[in-house]
Design a protein around this nucleic acid. Structure first.
Lengths: 200, 200, 200, 200
DNA sequence: CATGAATGAGTATTCATTCAT
DNA sequence: AATGAATGAATACTCATTCAT
């Protein structure tokens, strides 16, 4: 019990540093972010930063983990609101894609992280989201296809999730595109349904 | 007329610098590549490099353009060899995916460029490939679906191409994956067919 | 009287910190040793460390003093065992050199301190050793040369002791040497005898 | 021939940087010397420094090599002046020791380097000096002892050279000593003679 | 046209020491 | 007395680009 205040303080510092990391990335991009900027943004000395994180990499990784957890949570909360059980697969997919695109568009850090996916441990961000989506889709699969197991489900999901994420981020990065967002989302959802439903 | 030899020399120099850029990226990765390395690799002074290219960015962009053209050419040549007219859509797709995965795996520059797609003008590489694929697929569409035009074809192709490329590169980057490559390729081809064929 | 336990505790703390300093130097070298490492190694807060020692320098100096005292003691104990009175000067010298080389080789802290002799108050370590050696050699001189006082004895001893110590440490630091240790030790002892014995 | 001016400029820059290194070490000590100080002292950008030396270590090593060569040269020149052939061994030794002590006392860089001998490649400095001394002593040995080869000459020289150097530097480092310099030097020379002359 | 020497702002990280709790 | 979180000056080294020759 005596340790509580210290642990709380420590947790607060970690949280403050992660907030500062996010703010700095949002402001200056991943490449433009330095540990000194982060410390300054956090209103903390650079020495303190290194007392809580061994290096810059650890800071980014922690932020990604936190982002993953929070995004997963937000997705599940949103899924509850919409009463996912009443929806068909197309609607579930549409929902998820919209959530993803909105996240990327509204959260510059999310945008920056996925843009630089191969230079950061992006799975820390994506894995929780993947799990959240699978959990959300599970009842649907159980209800409708429990006796008709989908062939290669794992591979299909791997492809669909990666496809959706990277199509969305590439669409977001492109400054101008001939394609309308609504159409893109609809078509993506369509592809998902066609792929997962054995023979609709 | 007097300019001809100069222009030839100029073209040779440009080509030499692009070769050096590619070699250096292959050897040291995109981040590890410096303009001085490139000049040295080309056997040319750094000053000369800057006479032909305004900055590093321009060098990378030119290389991407050249890579795109060459890859498009290779794809078309290979498509000719296989007699694409005799294949069904599934086989055409399989062909293209295999071509892409092989390119990424065998060409370290291609790999490196796509890995860092958001930091380079990746469209210079992908657009020609996209066009080459469309040209190759065109006779197929004309032959089979000329009177039943596919809905949203452009959007679908945009999605499918991006999906294939990024699923492939993310698969290539991952050090270990539970999924077998053959299954991944098959499933990707499957998704493409299901998406493009209205109701097979 | 009330102070007694405190003083004991204080002495224990000092001793603990010196042990920790030695252990850390042995483990990480003098340059790699930080005050925080020492405090951690001692199982004590960094703040407490600074309650007992004003700075890092004082810590090292105290350790050197303690090492000097202990090494002097060990040397005297060993000298007793061997019955130094029955030995001739060559054997006495051989004995001392072997003791020194062994100390440097077996005790990483001793090695590290002498290696960095000019950055630490090395005399705190060497003076007691010098005195111990002089005390050990005294009866020999009294017995054999009391009526033929050695000219410049003090200077000669100063030179011989420094020569022996630094030849030994330089030999220990060198990774490869053409010279065999046995020969080195024998020759050193020889030099000492020739120097101290007026005309043998 | 066309390369001459460039090579000259390069040699000048190297020389200028080594001068600056020496000046900085003389001014601030080895530990207080930073690459930025050196560049500033040389009136050159830090980038230029790193164009000529890969790292700080290389700079120090080069300086030591140059110092060794120059010191060896100075020693030989001085030896010529004194007509070493007319001297006996005691005078030769005295000469060398005086030269060494003077070098250490008058050249703060020499002093600093030897003081920190275990942290710099000190052999780059000492080897040329050793060789110069051997060359200077050679005629003496040939003349007087060619038919009575000295036992263990190599080992003896190793010990005597190290002994002399480190006794001298330790004497120089000590702020106060009971011993007079003249006596120290005389006694050192004496020890050298007694050691090298089988039975005078 | 070609050269390549020179630039210098910028980056991650360390560690002795302090002082509020 | 004890704690340990916080400090911040300091350090070695990089690399795209320029411009005098």
């Amino acid at each position: 019990m005596r340790k509580a205040p210290k642990q709380k303080r420590s947790r607060e510092m970690v949280s403050r540093l992660l907030d500062a990391t996010a703010a700095t990335i949002a402001e200056r991009g991943l490449d433009g972010t330095t540990t000194n900027h982060i410390a300054e943004q956090a209103g903390v000395s650079i020495g303190s930063l290194y007392q809580y994180f061994p290096d810059k990499e650890a800071l980014v990784e922690s932020l990604l983990t936190r982002m993953g957890e929070q995004a997963g949570l937000r997705f599940r909360q949103q899924a509850k609101k919409v009463d996912i059980n009443a929806m068909n697969l197309h609607q579930v997919a549409l929902n998820a894609i919209q959530f993803g695109i909105l996240s990327i568009r509204l959260d510059p850090v999310m945008y920056e992280m996925i843009r630089n996916w191969s230079r950061v441990p992006i799975h820390k961000l994506l894995d929780p989201l993947e799990r959240a989506f699978l959990v959300a889709a599970q009842p649907y699969f159980l209800k409708h296809y429990s006796n008709y197991p989908i062939h290669n489900l794992e591979t299909k999901l791997y492809i669909l999730i990666n496809s959706t994420i990277f199509t969305a981020i590439r669409y977001a990065v492109q400054e101008e595109s001939m394609i309308e967002e609504k159409e893109l989302v609809e078509t993506l959802a369509d592809i998902i349904v066609r792929t997962l439903v054995p023979a609709a």
